[in-house]
Simulated scan of single mutants.
Amino acid sequence: MAATVKDAEGAEAQVTLDDQQKINKFARHNAKLQDIKDELKTKQKELENLQDAEEELLMLDGEDEGIPYQIGELFVNTTTEEASELIEKAKGTVQEDISQLETHAESHKTVLSDLKVQLYAKFGNNINLEAEED
């Protein structure tokens, strides 16, 4: 049995199983997109931290005393050159992760856009698919 929704003019629109599945799909993709956005913020902050560490290493120019570098939960002493290489490698990995996350975000945005068009066409102002501002 399909539920009915009244619009502003009093006309009724049937909420079919297909419509409900589209709404559920929209909700799933929207939740995934929000998770990706949160992860992107984390990765961008990590990239900023790596860039800051790289700048700090440049200021140590020529000093080869043991530079502590964190690997997991362990700190190891490295030379300035080794630390610089490790930071460059980490930056490359983080940049790849950011690129992949942005690609995933775009695919979710495309699906959400298509679903918005379909759902707004059927339900008009009776459905709100816009994200709430924090």
Rank of each mutant, 00 (worst) to 15 (best):
M1L: 10
A2Q: 13
A2N: 15
A3L: 15
V5Y: 04
V5H: 06
V5E: 05
K6D: 10
E9I: 06
G10N: 10
G10C: 07
G10A: 07
A11P: 01
A13F: 07
A13K: 14
Q14T: 11
V15E: 05
T16C: 11
T16V: 10
T16N: 09
L17S: 13
D18H: 11
D18P: 02
Q20V: 07
Q20D: 02
I23M: 15
N24I: 04
N24A: 15
A27C: 02
A27L: 05
A27D: 09
N30G: 02
A31Y: 13
L33T: 02
I36D: 11
I36W: 10
I36L: 15
D38C: 06
D38K: 15
E39H: 12
E39D: 15
E39L: 14
E39V: 05
E39Y: 07
L40P: 10
L40E: 12
T42P: 01
T42Y: 04
T42M: 06
K43E: 03
Q44H: 12
Q44F: 05
K45Q: 15
L47W: 00
L47V: 05
E48H: 05
Q51W: 01
D52N: 15
E54Q: 12
E54R: 13
E54A: 11
E55N: 14
E55Y: 04
E56A: 06
E56Y: 02
L57E: 03
L57V: 03
L60V: 07
D61G: 14
E65P: 01
P68A: 10
Q70I: 00
I71F: 04
I71R: 01
E73M: 01
L74D: 00
F75M: 08
V76T: 09
N77E: 11
T78G: 05
T78D: 03
T79H: 07
T80N: 09
T80K: 11
E81M: 05
E82I: 08
S84T: 11
E85W: 02
L86E: 00
I87T: 08
A90R: 13
A90H: 09
K91H: 08
T93P: 00
V94R: 03
V94L: 03
D97G: 06
S99R: 15
Q100N: 15
Q100C: 05
A105R: 09
E106T: 08
E106M: 06
H108S: 12
H108P: 03
K109E: 15
K109I: 08
T110F: 04
T110K: 15
V111Q: 09
L112I: 12
S113T: 09
D114K: 12
D114T: 11
L115R: 02
K116H: 08
K116R: 15
K116Y: 10
V117G: 01
V117S: 10
V117Q: 10
V117M: 05
Y120P: 01
F123P: 06
F123E: 06
G124A: 14
I127T: 04
N128Y: 03
L129Y: 05
E130C: 04
A131G: 03
A131T: 11
A131D: 14
E133D: 13
E133Y: 05
